[in-house]
Design a protein around this nucleic acid. Sequence first.
DNA 1: GGGAATGCATCTGTATGCAGATCGAGGAAA
DNA 2: TTTCCTCGATCTGCATACAGATGCATTCCC
Lengths: 213, 213
Amino acid sequence: MRAGTTVEQMVKAIADMIVTGTMQPGEKLDEFSLAARFQVSRTPVREALRELGAMGLVERQPNRSAVVTNVSGGYLSSMFEAMAELERVCARLAAGRMTVAERRALELSHHASMRLVRDGAEEDYAAYNVEFHTRLYNGAHNDHVFELVTQTRARLSPFRRAQFRLPGRLSKSYSEHQDIVTAILRGDGEAAGKAAYAHVSIVSDASTVFAAD
Amino acid sequence: MRAGTTVEQMVKAIADMIVTGTMQPGEKLDEFSLAARFQVSRTPVREALRELGAMGLVERQPNRSAVVTNVSGGYLSSMFEAMAELERVCARLAAGRMTVAERRALELSHHASMRLVRDGAEEDYAAYNVEFHTRLYNGAHNDHVFELVTQTRARLSPFRRAQFRLPGRLSKSYSEHQDIVTAILRGDGEAAGKAAYAHVSIVSDASTVFAAD
DNA sequence: GGGAATGCATCTGTATGCAGATCGAGGAAA
DNA sequence: TTTCCTCGATCTGCATACAGATGCATTCCC
């Protein structure tokens, strides 16, 4: 077994190219080319493609090349809505379950992000934003919900890259985070859920601009 | 290509054996035996197993046989909780979105199920129950939520087989369905969601009896 | 007798070859 | 010129072959 790359590594690598936009929706994934690129035979490439298909990142049809998933407008909005609902669930659960340490870390990290907003550091804020939401997902203390929300987020990622380029988006996002944090700190699950839902829904509206099918 | 079975057919067949309990959690899935059983070579079997792994129905480790997923007690309860939350979302959305025809069909089919309860027809009621919940999932008119809830349900199915054997479970389930239907018919999303959550949570409690890890 | 080492049977992971399907270019007919 | 057909290049789906990993039972040493 002198494989250049394992199936798991290929899955990661290809998934990464898709979610980072290196590969565009609709792009074909030719088994032979991928095999050459990763220095393996077609067999492991096929297995990787099948797994990516199950993850929803590529679409497969019999005797056709796999293509990077290009979800329809309708399905895309259903994913955004689902994302908002999942965030609501996470925030609500988190408000009742986060440990003292988790709450403190959420608060501190949120406060620190104010500086990024003031400096207009979009890249850094985007990274922080991922961290903020991940804190919520973890704070819910429900592994399966975490899996569902992570999976949905991964599939949405190709469609929300330009999000924070919108004017005023940073400070708006910050104040929405503020609402969520406040509700969580006082243990108000319903309010936290509502704020989280609103936060993600707004992102959704903005994103539809980029989501022409 | 004189394959006896396609990969897709194998995925379905094996998934079916898992969710119907023909294969128990923990059971090994030997590639060679499966290849012999389905009259194909190991290559398509491997692809099927990888897809089942991505679906969460089997677990795979390097150089080990795939085994039917046997989730830990903690993860199992997180799945039941997630299921309840998803049902809540579906019911809430369905209350506001179901078409007139869908509402009528839900009501009629629910009423008809009373007969199954009276006769103690457990098998038939279980089938009806799947139908009832599927109506909710569809009624939410959100394809991605449908996908998430279906996937979670599939992964839970090996752990809820004996559910309706519990004494008095049928009539209790019926009256809980009644609550959901009533709320949906009058368009009360919050009440429908609450009732659906309660319904599934109760199932969860009952099921933990069978879910020793 | 108990525990560690070893060899064999078995299984997984990947490469390669072949059959069938698909797609597109080029030519023939209208 | 347009449309349809054909043929070949290309690609997918699967079978087979082989190398490496694993597990178990036997054996050896203490």
